[in-house]
Amino acid sequence: MARWGMVIDLDRCNGCGGCMAACHKENNLAAVGADETVGMDRAFHWLKILPEVSGSGAEAEVRHVPHMCVQCDNPPCIRVCPVHATYLGEEGIVGQVYSRCIGCRYCMAACPYNAKVFNWYEPEWPGDLKKAANPDVSLRPKGVVEKCTFCHHRVVRAREEARAAGRPIADGEVTTACAETCPTKAITFGDLDDPDSRVRRLSRSSRAFRPHADLGTEPKVFYLAKKE
């Protein structure tokens, strides 16, 4: 059984935002509009790009950190969910079952990565935008929490194709929308348990670190960055 993970090379990321747009499109993220985004700090993204600045003045160095749910192996969010709407899947993806979620937002409070977002209002799909929705991913109702799923539907689809062809899933066959779009190939997705996978090799690089590894959450998103 696979254990899905991701490696993001911060030295390759140039902050173009392609991953963010791909994620929105792939996962049917609704636009929440100006009032909420601007007035209430409720920007609605599964994947954000956080600027990280070191130094100042002419010496300032800006680094862009693509940031999403890190799919903890020991996720704090699932412990606080009173209705088991969020859970750790058998392949290591932290799932969010919208039909179970009661919108208490405990998981959002528990998440040290600030990775979850909440549908405060019924998502709007003006004009023909609903027709452009990805049929593999549901349109969420109001009152539920949502977050990055590591493009779980793509994993399922790849497994389906592999099964139809009677072979195992090859390394690199499943990839997330963000990784697929990235023009600098900064994002790598794959099976951390596959001894030959690229993602496993990169995750063991000397440049690799995990966000807030000290919390004991065991994230499966690794970052690569040059050593200071």
């Binding site: 899947g89 799932g95 079952v97 779980h152 539907h153 399922v156």
Partner: peptide
């Protein structure tokens, strides 16, 4: 077959 929630509830 798997009974992972996300398989059907996505």
């Amino acid at each position: 077959a798997s009974n992972d929630c996300l398989l059907c509830h996505r």
